[in-house]
Design a protein around this nucleic acid. Structure first.
Lengths: 230, 230
DNA sequence: GTCTATAGTCAGATAGAC
DNA sequence: GTCTATCTGACTATAGAC
């Protein structure tokens, strides 16, 4: 990849939405980290995308790696917090599983760039650094929601599962893959995707097709720096 | 990520397996591209991993990007060829779907590093280059196998599917995700993973649980440059 | 808070000896 | 076929003017 042109300047969109330099920098970072990868994106790329200079970025950001860590931390915290709220009233394991599937799918569909960074750039944080350790801990905390739902469903006899871990890994991959292909103007609405994936999830745990809790999209985290679909 | 130490030198392993410099270079490239990403890996990293120098690499490789393109082309061709052979005798859509699921899962489990490069580094090829266009065409050709199997299953009344595209994307994400977590010495054997994923796939298309064709692992492609599990 | 200028490092790739 | 040495350019990050 010899060229690094950004393709679209974010400046036109961003000025009338948010003048805060921190938000503009983070929006450009999510866009370019998702599109080109963290390692292939330079501070100068970010600066060019929002009509700043190299040095201007460093007034708001201590380092390129700290910027990545901030984005990933905020993303994972938003995911965990909204999942906590989402599952708050759900008692039946089948409802909790359905909410885990639909909310993880929706977050990946609605924030494709931030989630691609969250899911794919963990290796770009220095191994063993406190930043990387913190993100790993957050990811593990989120996965515990899935482990508990599947464990409880099996214990209660609501799920019949050969291998809980395999089932969890299969369903989570299905949900996170959404950020790679979902388009808001595409063939399927987000509601259709969630409904289909929940149906597959229930089939995977041998739960009968039934009415389950549906995801309240308004409870999902709102990330001010998820770039627009330009 | 400030440090770029390779961690393990491949030289000890490689010398008694294959002295061909092309294979040694490609093995190191698959290992490091998968572990650190293409953009974060330098030609000097590759050289260090196999006790060569920077300039020595360039006697066997025309450029870093051509090396990546070669690996991706070989990987996709191996995937397509082995899938062709695998599906050769299978007529029933349910058998073809089962073979697509189990073979894609197995290739990702057995070649985790090459498949991570294949699935994640398409963006690192120059957009619009003939190399990138070629890989995209190969990927599309492979996906057609899935489209045909699902189409035929629906037409024949063997599958009941709300949305063929969503079903395909969900199942393919499930299979490809395997390269991120599978370990040969882990909790599940490859046979168990394939069986579980095939069961989920049949449930996803509302096909009754039944005996289906199983994947002949010996028909899978053998990549001489998939690194050992060091 | 944004700029110009630059320090210090390292990248991909090549030349030419052996 | 592998080496040493080097070119050219780009990178992260900082210093200091305004």
């Amino acid at each position: 990849m010899t060229e690094r042109s950004v393709g679209t300047t974010l400046e036109g969109y961003l000025t009338d939405r948010d003048a805060d330099a921190r938000v503009r920098i983070r929006t450009a970072a999510v866009l370019l980290f998702a599109r080109q990868g963290y390692a292939a994106t330079t501070i100068r790329d970010l600066a060019r995308a929002i009509n700043m200079t190299n040095a201007g970025i460093y007034h708001h950001v201590s380092s390129k790696e700290a910027l990545l860590a901030d984005l990933m931390r905020a993303g994972h915290r938003g995911l965990i917090d909204s999942t906590d709220r989402m599952l708050d009233g759900a008692r039946r394991p089948v409802d909790r599983l359905a909410l885990l599937i639909s909310s993880l799918t929706a977050i990946h569909a609605l924030n494709p760039m931030l989630t691609r960074v969250m899911d794919g750039e963990l290796r770009s944080l220095t191994p063993g650094s406190t930043a990387q350790d913190e993100i790993i801990a957050l990811r593990d905390a989120y996965e515990d929601h899935w482990r508990r739902a599947l464990d409880d469903g099996v214990s209660a006899g609501a799920f019949r599962v050969t291998d809980r871990r395999l089932t969890r890994l299969a369903l989570m991959s299905m949900c996170t893959g959404t950020s790679e292909w979902y388009r808001p103007d595409g063939d399927s609405t987000l509601e259709q995707v969630c409904a289909e994936f929940v149906a597959i999830g229930l089939a995977a745990v041998r739960a009968p097709a039934q009415a389950v809790a549906t995801c309240d999209f308004s409870l999902l985290p709102a990330f001010p720096w998820e770039p627009p679909n330009v």
